[in-house]
C-alpha cells in the first residue's frame, strides 16, 4: 500500500503548489500509516526532484519518454494508472488545477477509483474514507465518502500549508510502456504568459470592479499590485466590457482563487463574484456603498471612492517598504 502524489512540473520546475501537494500527501500517508511516493512525468533534473523529498516524499518516481513531451490526457492517464497499480497506491493525490482537472477524472474511470475534487482539508476519517470538499461554488462544503479501494483526491490550490519533513528520498527512473496510438493531441501553437505573476499562484491579489469607472483609471490599482508583489484581477463586468483581459476575471465562471489577501476595489460582491474568491484568507473591500455585500465577507473595509483611496494606499505601502 502507498499514497501516490502526481507532482506536475512547469518546464522542469516545481512550484510552491507542488510542495503543498507533497506536504498534504505526506500527512495522508501518515494517517494511513504508509509511505508517500511522488510521481513526476517529463524532463525534470535530479536536483529539482530532490526538493520533493523535503516535504516528506519517501520515494520519487520519474517517468520520462517520448510520449511525455506534451500533455495528452490519455497518455498521462495511462502513465499515472500504471504507476499507481505497480506501487499499489490506495490514495492518489493530484492538484485541482487545469492539468489535474484534465487527467484525474479519466484516471478515476480507468482505475474504477472514486474521486473527490476540490478537497481543502485532510481526510475527516479513514474508515469510511471521508473528505471535505467545496460545493455550491463555495457556498457550502460537503463530507464525501469514497467507497472504492483506490481513492483519488484533487487538492484545492493554496488550501494546505507547506510542512517540511526532510526525507532523503531516492529517485527511481521507471520505464512505462505506452501504446503509441493513444497519443492523439497535436499542439499547433503555444502562447506562454511570461514575466507576469500568475493569478492562480499569487499570494496577494488586487482586483478591480465597475467602481473603477473607466479602463483609464487602472494605473493606481496596477501600481498597488506592483508595490505589494501582487497579481491583478477583475470582476466579470470589467472583463466583459473589455476594460481588462478575460484572464483576469475571477468569479463563478472565471478563475477561482484562494490567495492569502484579496483586495476588492470597487467590487460590490455579487454571489457569482464571491464564488471565485470566498476561499481567500483575508478580504479587503474598498467601495463607496457601505451596504455592498462585499463588506459581509471582508475583514477590513474602507467606505470611499476607490480612485481617491488607491493612491493613498500606494503611498502607505511604499512608506512601509522603505
Amino acid at each position: 500500500m502507498s499514497v501516490l502524489v502526481y507532482a506536475q512540473n512547469w518546464d522542469g520546475k516545481f512550484k510552491k503548489s507542488s510542495f503543498e501537494l507533497v506536504s498534504y500527501g505526506s500527512k495522508v500517508a501518515e494517517m494511513l500509516n504508509t509511505s508517500l511516493i511522488c510521481l513526476s512525468i517529463g524532463t525534470v533534473s535530479d536536483e529539482e526532484l530532490k526538493k520533493l523529498g523535503n516535504y516528506g516524499a519517501g520515494k520519487i518516481i520519474r517517468v520520462n519518454n517520448e510520449f511525455c513531451k506534451i500533455l495528452d490526457n490519455q497518455v498521462y492517464t495511462d502513465i499515472i494508472a500504471q504507476v499507481a497499480l505497480k506501487e499499489e497506491a490506495s490514495v492518489i493525490i493530484i492538484s485541482n488545477n487545469t492539468e489535474g482537472k484534465a487527467v484525474a477524472p479519466r484516471l478515476s474511470v480507468r482505475l474504477k477509483a472514486g474521486m473527490a475534487s476540490g478537497v481543502s482539508k485532510l481526510p475527516l476519517s479513514i474508515a469510511p474514507f471521508t473528505v471535505y470538499k467545496r460545493t455550491y461554488s463555495g457556498n457550502a462544503f460537503a463530507h464525501l465518502v469514497i467507497n472504492t479501494d483506490i481513492k483519488i483526491i484533487t487538492l484545492a490550490q493554496n488550501s494546505f500549508s507547506l510542512i517540511e519533513t526532510p526525507n532523503n528520498a531516492g529517485i527511481e527512473d521507471m520505464s512505462v510502456s505506452i501504446d503509441s496510438s493513444l497519443l492523439k493531441t497535436v499542439i499547433k501553437d503555444t502562447q506562454k504568459q511570461t514575466g507576469r505573476l500568475l493569478l492562480t499562484d499569487a499570494e496577494i491579489v488586487v482586483s478591480g470592479g465597475r467602481g473603477m469607472k473607466s479602463p483609464d483609471n487602472w494605473g493606481p490599482l496596477v501600481e498597488l499590485a506592483s508595490v505589494l508583489g501582487a497579481a491583478t484581477a477583475c470582476s466579470r463586468p470589467v472583463s466583459d466590457e473589455g476594460w481588462r483581459s478575460h484572464e483576469e476575471h475571477t468569479g463563478q465562471t472565471g478563475k477561482v482563487i484562494a490567495p492569502n489577501l484579496y483586495i476588492a476595489v470597487g467590487i460590490s460582491g455579487a454571489t457569482q463574484h464571491l464564488a471565485g474568491v470566498s476561499s481567500s484568507k483575508y478580504i479587503v473591500a474598498i467601495n463607496t456603498d457601505k451596504d455592498a455585500p462585499i463588506f459581509e465577507v471582508a475583514q477590513y473595509g474602507i467606505v470611499g471612492d476607490a480612485l481617491r483611496v488607491l493612491p493613498k494606499l500606494v503611498e502607505a505601502v511604499k512608506e512601509l517598504k522603505k
Binding site: G114, H143, L144, I283, F295, Y300, G301, I302, E319
Partner: peptide, 28 residues
Amino acid sequence: LTRITVFEKPSPRAACKFIDPENPGQLI
C-alpha cells in the same frame, strides 16, 4: 463510487473592521 453524507455552510467570517478613508495607512 462516492456519496455525500452531510453539507456544511462555511464558517461565518468576523465582522468587517472599517478604516477611515482619509487614513488608509491604518489598513496597511
